[in-house]
Simulated assay, not measured.
Amino acid sequence: MKRVHENLVKKSPIALSLTWFGLILCSALLLGSTIASAEETEPEMPFALDDDGRLVRFDRDVAPILRTRCLECHNEEDARGDFRVDDRDTLLGYVEPDDAESSTLFADYLTIDDEDMLMPPRTHGGPLSASELSIIRVWINEGAGWPEDVQLVSAGAEDKLAVAVAPPTTLLGRVWAAQGFLHPATVHFPVALLLLGAAFVVLGWKWPAVGTQIPLACLLIGAVTAIASTAMGFSFAVERGYGSWDRFDAAIMEKEVFWHRWSGVVVSVLAAVFAIIALVSLRTKNARMTTVWKAGLLVCAAIVGLVGHQGGEMSYGEDFYPKMFRTLLGTPETNADAVTVSAASVVQKSERNLE
């Protein structure tokens, strides 16, 4: 044991960094697989029915689909094919209540194989996604209720941000689109690594032996994974309906996804810069540069913490993290804690169970 200890002590800083790099990488992969396996099993959750016992509500579930996917071409001013989705009587004339498969709207337009009849057409982002079709199917099978006091109005600036994008046709485009689906799996790595590295920088003030090699390894891996996760996020945002990434108009700058996206870019750039400084300081043994990259790691950890917090609220709701503290402190729950599941998630879950 003494000889092994002496060999470790004699290792160069680069060798020690690679050793810590391997250990942390293995730990991160193990953590990622644990998170993935935990997310595969969904707990049974109650869902809210309306006063008539229906799962799908027109105003909450169906109207947003019609507004963002159909209304642009089938409205009062531009009723293509002499068909309007904002006119209650017109739309319901294409529906057979309680029987989606016999409804002209569902069978002859939304799910038909004929490209000339498919709505919305592929040139306008069609067809509808599986979850959107599931919502409309359930809505029709539950009677196709459209309250007379509910009107389908033209989408405002907020709704128009959710632009349907036609599927990519080139190989490069398909690769770019496909890698975006890895964003939810990879986004945990830079968050965990940069925060872990910053924690060891702080611990290094008390115990210098742990204040350099571990933070350095965390910074190097964190920078690489931050860049990869950010690139995947840009692609995934388009898939999730947030539109193109290169818009800077006032409307999209008010959207939370805009700031989430570009704060991720800031983290990636800063992490890469400080990682380069760290490697140079390791080679030149420059104490001032070492101080710079450690301070930079603390800054990156603070920003990535905010980015991760924002991403969590975008995925699970603004009350998600406050509820964590209420749970920890044992404070009474509010009405916001009532668990409701959207029709899309319930239908998707039932479809997965049937597969």
Rank of each mutant, 00 (worst) to 15 (best):
W139C: 02
G93D: 00
A338R: 14
M1V: 14
A237Q: 10
K160H: 11
P332H: 00
G22Y: 04
D86P: 05
D78G: 05
V62L: 00
W146G: 07
S131G: 13
D52V: 02
V95T: 07
A199L: 09
K255I: 06
V267W: 03
P64C: 00
I276R: 12
R288F: 05
T291F: 08
M1Y: 13
V202R: 14
K323E: 15
F47Y: 07
V347T: 10
D87V: 12
L161A: 06
G143F: 13
Q310A: 13
H124P: 06
S102M: 06
V266K: 01
I112Y: 04
A107H: 06
G145K: 03
Y109M: 14
P184R: 12
F47Q: 07
L8K: 13
R326E: 14
T170V: 04
A155N: 11
E333P: 07
I112T: 14
D99A: 01
H183Q: 08
M45P: 05
A301H: 08
T225R: 02
A130R: 14
H260I: 01
L219R: 14
E254N: 12
S342I: 15
R288Q: 15
V62T: 04
L71K: 07
R57D: 11
S345Q: 13
V299M: 03
V339D: 15
S33V: 11
E254W: 09
S235N: 06
L306M: 10
G305L: 06
V95Q: 02
G126M: 11
L118E: 12
F83C: 08
W176T: 08
E40S: 12
R326P: 08
D61A: 01
V341Q: 14
K160N: 15
I221T: 10
E76C: 00
L182F: 08
R57L: 11
P147W: 03
R352G: 07
D99F: 00
F83K: 13
A100T: 07
A162M: 11
A164N: 13
P13T: 02
G211V: 12
A166T: 09
V85S: 02
T290K: 12
K294W: 02
P208H: 12
W245H: 15
V9H: 08
K11E: 02
E333R: 00
T123A: 10
V299S: 03
L171S: 01
K349F: 12
F236R: 01
A226H: 03
E142A: 05
P97T: 02
G32K: 00
K323P: 05
L30R: 02
F236Q: 06
